[in-house]
Amino acid sequence: MSESKLGKYKMTVQNVVTSANLFNRVDLVKAASSLDNIEYEPEQFPGMVIRLDEPKTATLVFGSGKLVCTGAKSPEESRRAIFKIIEILKDYGTPMEKEPDIVVQNIVASGDLEMKLNLDDIILTLPNCEYEPEQFPGLIYRLKEPKVVLLLFGSGKVVCTGAKSEEDVIKAIERVKKSLIEEGLA
């Protein structure tokens, strides 16, 4: 989809977190006793963790029939993982009636702006940023639209978190690049 566009800005998606609602209760105790490769410690955490090798993800399954899938490298991959889990869980609840409700919650992407940044100068000019070299070497830049948080590093590397879609990542990067160039900081 927007793969190529992300590539243009040297951004790669590192993690996608999606939530899904199966509208169907899952019997975790039953599932846990007959499935292997899972973690389920109801004393510690009410969810069951299923780790898949392909796509390489970890999914939390709750008794209420809600899932959280983490670790996917793209929204599509995450979707695929959820359907795989649904297939696995088929025998431990009432049969699926509705289409599961899958929502992307967070996308983390990293990349390179390919320019050296002087963070000391940026903090003086850009609004909504935080830079505490004593505590963290990166500059934290919060965008309102799209609502994401960017970490800018002196080397020009960036990390973008909080995006709900890959478009958000692209928009955020474009916006930051523009304002950096406008302010003559790049």
Binding site: K116, L117, N118, L119, D120, P133, E134, P137, G138, F153, G154, S155
Partner: peptide, 13 residues
């Protein structure tokens, strides 16, 4: 050092 940007991203101490 500040002028050449050697402090950017480095702990002041």
């Amino acid at each position: 050092a500040i002028k050449v940007g050697l402090t950017s991203g480095r702990g002041p101490t």
